[in-house]
C-alpha cells in the first residue's frame, strides 16, 4: 500500500522533472530544428562546391577538391553571366533607390491627387506573381512599336528590374521618413540653410541608413531574380539564368562556388553590421 504510494509519488515526481526539462528546453530544441531546416540546403551547396564530381551531375559526393574554387570561372559563360548580373544589380538598385526616395518623399510629405492610389499601386509589383509580371513585360517589349526602339537584352532587363525594385525602395525609405521630425528641416532653414542645403545637410544624412538599406535590398532582389529576367532577357544571360540553363544539363560545381561566395559575403555583412551596432550602443551607454 505504502510502497505503491511511494512509487506513484516518485513516478509523478519523475514526470514533473521531465516536464520541467521539456518546458525549459523546448524553445531551444525547436529553434535548433528550425535553424537546421534553414541551413541544411545551404550546407549542401557549400559542401558540394568542394566536390569532385564524376560525370555531368554534381549530386554524388566523390571526393574533396579545391579545384572548383581555383578555377571558379572555368565554365564557359559563367563569368559573363555573373558580370551582367552585378552590372544590372548595381544600376537597378541605384536607379530604383533614387526614384524610390523621391516617390517616398512625395508620398509622405505632400497631399496630392491620386496619392492614395499611388500608395496602393506602389505595392502592386510586390503582390503580383512574378510570372505575371514577366509575361506582361514581355508583351510590352514584344509590341512592334516598342521592339523597334528597344530590343530584348540589357536594357529590357534593367527596366524590368528597376520596376520591381522601386517598390522595395519606396517601402524602405517611407518607413524612415514617417518617423522624421519635420522641425529638423525647419530648424535648418531657420539657421540660414536654403532648400538645397537643408536637403543635403539634414534630410539626406538622416535618411542615409534607409537609402543604404534600400540599395542593398534592391541589389539582392535584382541579382536573385530569375522569372522576370528569363522572360525579358532575350539573348542575354544573367547568373540565375545561367544556373537554370546549366542545371538542365547538369550544373557544374562552380555554380556552388558562386552561391557559397554570395552566402559568405551576405553573412559577413550582417555580422559586421551587428558588431557596429553593439559598439555604437556601448559608446552611447558609456556617457
Amino acid at each position: 500500500m505504502s510502497a505503491i504510494a511511494v512509487s506513484a509519488a516518485r513516478r509523478s515526481q519523475d514526470l514533473a522533472a521531465a516536464w520541467a526539462f521539456v518546458r525549459r528546453h523546448v524553445l531551444t530544441v525547436y529553434a535548433m530544428l528550425g535553424f537546421a531546416y534553414l541551413m541544411l540546403p545551404i550546407g549542401f551547396v557549400i559542401a558540394f562546391s568542394f566536390n569532385h564530381p564524376q560525370g555531368r551531375f554534381n549530386y554524388v559526393w566523390n571526393g574533396f577538391t579545391f579545384d572548383n574554387w581555383k578555377h571558379w570561372d572555368g565554365v564557359p559563360g559563367l563569368r559573363s553571366a555573373l558580370v551582367l548580373s552585378i552590372e544590372i544589380g548595381l544600376l537597378a538598385s541605384l536607379l530604383a533607390t533614387a526614384l524610390g526616395t523621391l516617390i517616398a518623399l512625395a508620398l509622405v510629405r505632400y497631399r496630392f491627387r491620386a496619392r492614395g492610389a499611388t500608395n496602393i499601386l506602389i505595392f502592386l509589383p510586390l503582390s503580383t506573381p512574378e510570372i505575371v509580371l514577366g509575361a506582361s513585360l514581355l508583351t510590352l517589349f514584344g509590341n512592334r512599336q516598342i521592339s523597334n526602339v528597344i530590343q530584348l537584352g540589357f536594357w529590357t532587363i534593367l527596366i524590368a528590374h528597376v520596376m520591381f525594385c522601386i517598390s522595395f525602395a519606396v517601402v524602405t525609405i517611407k518607413a524612415r521618413l514617417i518617423g522624421f521630425d519635420r522641425h529638423l528641416e525647419e530648424a535648418a532653414m531657420d539657421l540660414g540653410a536654403n532648400e538645397w542645403a537643408t536637403f543635403t545637410k539634414v534630410t539626406l544624412p538622416l535618411i542615409a541608413p534607409a537609402i543604404l538599406a534600400s540599395m542593398l535590398l534592391c541589389f539582392a532582389v535584382s541579382v536573385d531574380d530569375f522569372v522576370v529576367t528569363y522572360f525579358n532577357a532575350g539573348p542575354r544571360v544573367t547568373f540565375p539564368v545561367f544556373v537554370w540553363n546549366s542545371a538542365r544539363v547538369g550544373a557544374p560545381p562552380q555554380v556552388n562556388v558562386i552561391g557559397s561566395v554570395i552566402f559568405i559575403v551576405a553573412v559577413t555583412g550582417m555580422v559586421a553590421n551587428v558588431l557596429v551596432q553593439i559598439r555604437r550602443q556601448r559608446s552611447a551607454a558609456t556617457v
Binding site: H183, A187, A188, D190
Partner: peptide
C-alpha cells in the same frame, strides 16, 4: 520671405537638434 532670409532664430519646443 522664407525663414532662411530672415534675421530671426528659433528655439523649438522639441528642440529639433540635429541628431547626426
Amino acid at each position: 520671405l522664407p525663414s532662411y532670409k530672415r534675421d530671426v532664430n528659433t528655439v523649438f519646443q522639441s528642440y529639433a537638434l540635429f541628431p547626426h
